[in-house]
Amino acid sequence: METMVEIKNLCKQFGPLTAVDDISFQVGKGEVLGFLGPNGAGKSTTMKMVTGFLTPSAGTVTVDGYDIAQSPLKVKERIGYLPEGAPAYPDMTPASFLEFVAQIRGLRGREKYRRIDDTVMRVNLENVLYQSIDTLSKGFKRRVGLAQAILHDPEVLILDEPTDGLDPNQKHEVRTLITDMAKEKVIILSTHILEEVHAVCSRAIIIANGKILADGTPSDLEAKSQYHNSVTITLRAATKKSAEMRQSLLKLPGVKKLEKLVEADSTLSYQIFPEANRSIIGEVSQHARNQQWEVEELHVEKGHLDEVFRTITTDLS
């Protein structure tokens, strides 16, 4: 995989506060990297340094072989950036705003109009093209912000909370857009919505207090969860038999512990945790069949990303 963005030992200090503390990572073409972290973790600050808005206190940012300190314009040409909150000039219309951005990006003539038309279609701005931006709804404003970011078909897209504050339909649209563009680009996006990581990201980095705490595919991260490979079973059975059934489940090979979820109205539901790196779904289902239990639900948990997130980011303090 071709490395497009390389970040080495990046640091940013604001007075006595260290916002970003020695962050290094590389992103290759085709990757969608999700930046996860609590508010104030340093996600936005890192993005602002990659886009050249902020000057790092230490460390380097290289995009497509160009160092941002040495050739900032070469780097900026290659990046499309959606800042947090999708700022745009409120007194302009999307049409005039995109025209302005196209000119700033050096697009001319037929190519310019082709890019503008293509972008407007991609983000569905046709109906509000001649309305002033400050009268637009949040969802449309976000689309205008996305449009200016992808207008010049950049190799690297940096999106700071692209779906923040959007309704579920709009979120879905933005995610589809991101997935569509993922193949030929490098996309770095920040979010604190964990389901989004599953929906769009091929890789996730968790940062807190300016440090990288975890870096891997969404499934790698889920494997860190204590729920990873645990089995949830829901049975129909008399409540008085519950103690006996729990005991029999606990005796199965590979089972470490069992948590009671529901035990009422002749519905019994348990969460069964395996010993490290084991899968117990086979054993559990076999056992249920042997005992001729009336199983209503039986499934394996992949792991809870939010639980991993909480464990990793709160361990620190």
Binding site: G52, E84, A88, Y89
Partner: peptide
């Protein structure tokens, strides 16, 4: 209006 962030990340 934070447009400065846009303006200064243009080439």
């Amino acid at each position: 209006s934070s447009t400065i962030e846009l303006l200064l990340t243009f080439p």
